[in-house]
Design a protein around this nucleic acid. Structure first.
Length: 426
DNA sequence: TCTGGGGTCCTAGGACCC
DNA sequence: TCTGGGGTCCTAGGACCC
């Protein structure tokens, strides 16, 4: 059996942990730049505040009901996420926890006798909440797709399930499938949902009785086949590795306010590249491909799509590298090429791909070997920035004025990762 | 006036090879 | 006038996830 553990309203729960007076009151957390609402407490959901809706649209409702809003505080969420995952790892044998996202983990429970599964799930939920203060919901079923369905229902019917739902018989599975709308299935997005409804398939049960070959034809080949098999209880999506080693690393941001000067764009790109290179070094990788994109303002809000067409380009380096200065140079050059005088931009980003392990960087006969002392410089910078924080050491091309920096007007203190922001009890 | 920031996997089709 | 068959690799783009 497989389980998915999902933190309830994760970002809101993190904020509430340090502001217990907000318990029982509506609160929301905003995306970067205070743009969208990305997490809502149960009370905020009950007020009808939409998920992923623009903050400015929800503002009247937020004021009227005295909802507390927070800018996102990734230091805090990242640290609490780590605590939750470590707790799970302590409760299970090695290799049975797959961290899936900041607030979710799959568990392999095959070592637990069937009649003890529910008991175990309840224990996990209780211990995680006791040790970290974060409430979680747990769905258990024979496959990952079914466990996600169980989890959703556990959360939806908290009063009955107490946030734990185990689907272990054909009858309970079928009941759950009937109660699950097609768009609430893990792997069915906006487009497939539309397609399926047109074909008269409205819930997970109706999809599950289709032949897997039907899935191949209408739902993107092997992905569709797998999904149908998983719905029928045949496990096809195996437990994976923790996704610590990324195949692509991106740093992208909206600007705090629109930017028209190429100098600002280049500074932003240099800064994003530094951040991406840090992430790259953290996983001991080196990248061969640098991509840059910028998004002009004009086209971006004339349609229902939030982002207008992005203008992008990439270069392949002769040799994979993890050195910030070697990545900044091509990135800034790309930005300069993409920039058009007279236009205003609202967003930019850098992506690193073609990632290989740093120690096994393929040699290139025509390039001198990277000098070791430059690696030393990088690790020194990383260490100083880690200890002192806030980019105390940075490359000059990253700029100092930073007119383009994002807005974060409502951010709470970084209680658990900064001494000077520690929570004080009087 | 104001709409996030990351990621993954898969497929089709083109370029190229013998 | 007639113009193969089979394979690999790469890239762009689509779909999805949280």
């Amino acid at each position: 059996m497989k389980a998915i553990v999902d933190c309830n309203n994760f970002y809101c729960s993190c904020e509430r942990l340090f502001k217990p007076e907000l318990k029982g009151k509506p609160s929301v957390v905003l995306s970067n730049n205070d743009g969208c609402i990305v997490s809502r407490s149960d009370e905020a959901k009950a007020l009808g505040i939409a998920m992923a809706g623009p903050y400015f649209q929800a503002k009247p409702l937020i004021r009227q009901h005295n909802v507390t809003a927070f800018s996102s505080n990734y230091h805090l969420y990242g640290d609490l996420s780590w605590r939750v995952m470590e707790t799970l790892r302590l409760l299970l044998p090695p290799g049975r926890v797959e961290v899936y996202s900041v607030d979710e983990a799959f568990l392999d429970l095959d070592h637990i006798p069937k009649d003890q599964i529910r008991e175990m799930a309840i224990r996990i939920r209780t211990v995680v909440e006791q040790w970290t203060g974060i409430a979680v919901s747990i769905g258990v079923a024979p496959t990952k797709v079914l466990s996600k369905i169980a989890n959703r229902l556990a959360k939806k019917h908290k009063d009955i399930t107490d946030c734990v739902l185990v689907l272990d018989s054909p009858r309970t599975i079928q009941q759950a499938l009937v109660k699950t709308d097609i768009e609430d299935i893990w792997g069915v997005g906006f487009r497939y949902a539309h397609k399926l409804r047109q074909q008269g398939i409205n819930n997970a049960y109706e999809l599950s009785i289709k032949d897997p070959s039907w899935g191949r034809k209408y739902m993107g080949g092997v992905t569709g086949t797998r999904l149908l098999k998983e719905l029928r209880g045949e496990s096809c999506i195996e437990m994976g590795e923790d996704r610590l080693v990324k195949k692509m690393i991106a740093t992208t941001r909206m600007f705090g306010s629109p930017v028209h000067d190429v100098k600002d764009i280049k500074e932003a790109i240099a800064t994003y590249t530094s951040r991406a290179a840090e992430k790259l070094r953290r996983q001991h990788g080196a990248a061969k491909v640098v991509s840059v994109f910028i998004v002009p303002k004009e086209q971006s809000h004339n349609t229902y799509f939030r982002h207008g067409p992005t203008i992008s380009s990439h270069v392949t380096l002769p040799l994979a590298t993890s050195l910030t200065q070697e990545l900044i140079k091509p990135a800034v050059e790309l930005a300069e090429q993409l920039y058009e005088e007279g236009r205003t931009y609202k967003k930019a980003g850098v992506m690193l791909s073609g990632i290989v392990p740093d120690e096994s960087v393929q040699g290139n006969l025509f390039m001198p070997e990277t000098l070791n002392n430059r690696r030393l410089l990088m690790s020194t910078m990383d260490n100083v920035n880690f200890a002192m924080r806030d980019d105390i050491l940075k490359f000059a091309s990253s700029g100092t004025a930073r007119n383009w920096k994002m807005r974060q007007e409502l951010r709470s203190p970084r209680y658990t990762t900064r001494w000077e922001e520690l929570c004080e009890v009087s």
